[in-house]
Design a protein around this nucleic acid. Structure first.
Lengths: 344, 344
DNA sequence: CTGAAAGCGCTTACAG
DNA sequence: CTGAAAGCGCTTACAG
């Protein structure tokens, strides 16, 4: 009942060497590499190790190899299903690669973010995957780069040239939404988005605008605000309560779209009868909300997995040239977009 | 541009000792404990360390102290917002305690779970927090206990006497639902739940049954199935398509309730006009779904935080008596429960 | 308050 | 294919 302290002494490599009648070195080689050990010797070492339930001391190993077999994952908040999805992709890839994931929630707080980065460097992680880098200064970038630890950013981040990146094809996503709206005969639309310095979001807005303007008779505007459900709610309230001409709203992410739904419900504007709505992300909720949301599916899981694979690749590479990966997106049509009402 | 390999040599403790003109030992003491070092010496060591951007090698430290300052968190799936919420609570607590969280997704696969446990033991984690233990055999329990690593389970788990536990007051939650239904004049209800061996769920069913039966004229039954959205969907289809007498459905978790909503929508049964519905968990989605779900709020974040604190406490304790914590729950009334129709 | 020294448990050239 | 030995970078009794 009493899980007494003083962990029972664990068998060491010396113990298995003794049990087998070989030296430390041979035992080590038998356990690790496959080469340079007589099969029979190897078998006996493995047997003894299993018998003693030997587990290599990771500290000792790390001390000599300099590798931790862990990678840090810094995200804003794991409760955000977008990041949970990404984290799962990374974790699964880490599992098969025999790596550990150190979970860090930065809350987009740059102090907290730097604290984590420092801590991860201190732990000699084999790599760092992180999302929000809007706030990474040049000095911080240099600092991280100087550690020699490979970094992959979950953003386009043209302003961080020394780090690898993986992200969805945000621009194409924006364009797909525009095309969908156009196909449903919308000619006046607004795109609700976040701050201008958020690269992923900016690309979505760009794609949307470009796509919409392609149709000569169409007109779209972009409104900047806070890219959260609350932000979408506020922006929609302002938009929908004043006399408006638009027939469709596009939001930079699903969370904002949920805010729009809430505001519309309160004000008595029906979706899609009175105004169509499209999100971006295809979060789990998007399919369950009312009305089910037309949105862009981002390969979140795959992005996490890809990020981890890139780290592994960088770890084993001689030259660490940053790599940039853009993953495809697709339009998911549900019921929040329909033809506009005849007249308004 | 080229993050070349061969991490630049990091300063060691020897370097800061040299820079200060003291020995390794003194430098170490100055950096770690506060005691036994002349304030001025200490100041100079700290200064030199900062100057060199010295970071202690965790491997070397771990090798001698035997502690990793990391704790393993094994959950079914981080994409499940219930676990994400719990994970966040644990991570925040870990952050303030200076500990790392190693994220492990077991998928309720007992092999994967044991694999992770093994790996965590190997890494000398300071503790393990885990949810699903339905499948932990006595042998496995003994094995884990033998490692001397403190464990806290996110379940009641009366069958794991040597591990600490933290969970919500499931029984009371079940009772609150029953009372809510009763207060709305329901007299015939069904409780949809998962497998019998799932302790948390069993307690909810028990509370529900006890509460419902307290009213002499009321009648409740429990139906076992799969405790997922899909499971709830299937169970509701069977239930609602056959002639039924019940006026209310209670589910063992919110996911199942979402399945019920989906089935009801398909069949044309209105909630709450035709049948009332109550969930359990108060997942984020519960407030956003249609109709907003009446449910039991579990302190998920707090459970995660509590689990981590218990680990810290156990780590520092001389005698490791398992501790059991039950956190309060509360009823969240939304619109999925109303008075039953006059007659059916 | 500080130093000299042992030792934590491995891996990895270097010989043989 | 195997052994003897150095060394990774710390912490911590043990002296002084």
């Amino acid at each position: 009942m009493d899980q007494s302290k003083g962990n029972p002494p664990r068998p060491t490599l010396q113990d298995v060497a003794d049990a087998t009648g070989v030296t430390l070195a041979t035992a080590s080689r038998a356990l690790n590499g496959t080469y340079g050990v007589h099969p029979e010797t190897r078998r006996r070492v493995l047997e003894a190790a299993a018998q003693l339930d030997y587990k290599a001391n990771r500290f000792a190993r790390g001390l000599v190899t300099g590798r931790s077999n862990a990678i840090g994952l810094i995200i804003s908040d794991i409760r955000n299903s977008y990041f949970a999805e990404t984290a799962r992709g990374a974790e699964d890839a880490a599992y098969t690669a025999g790596l550990d994931i150190l979970l860090c929630n930065s809350d987009v707080d740059s102090d907290k973010q730097m604290h984590y980065i420092n801590s991860l460097i201190e732990k000699r992680v084999d790599g760092i995957i992180m999302n929000s880098v809007a706030t990474l200064t040049k000095v911080e970038q240099d600092y991280i780069a100087a550690s020699g630890i490979p970094v992959v950013l979950l953003t386009r981040a043209a302003d961080c040239p020394m780090f690898s990146t993986v992200c969805a094809d945000n621009e194409r996503g924006g364009r797909l939404i525009a095309e969908c709206l156009l196909a449903h005969n919308h000619r006046k639309a607004v795109h609700l988005t976040g701050p201008r310095n958020h690269t992923n979001l900016a690309m979505r807005a760009k794609g949307f605008l470009d796509g919409f303007r392609q149709a000569g008779d169409a007109d779209a505007t972009v409104v900047h605000g806070v890219h959260t459900m609350e932000g979408g709610y506020q922006m929609a309230r302002n938009l929908l309560r004043s006399p408006y001409k638009i027939t469709a709203i596009s939001t930079a992410n699903d969370a904002m779209a949920f805010g729009v739904i809430k505001a519309a419900l309160e004000i008595g504007v029906r979706i899609p009868e009175d105004v169509s709505l499209a999100g971006f992300d295809d979060v789990e909720l998007a399919a369950l909300v009312h009305p089910p949301l037309t949105t862009i599916r981002q390969p979140k899981y795959e992005m996490g997995a890809a990020a981890l694979e890139m780290i592994v690749k960088l770890t084993n590479a001689k030259h660490r040239m940053p790599e940039h990966r853009v993953l495809g997106v697709e339009l998911v049509e549900r019921s929040s977009v329909s033809k506009p009402r005849p007249q308004r």
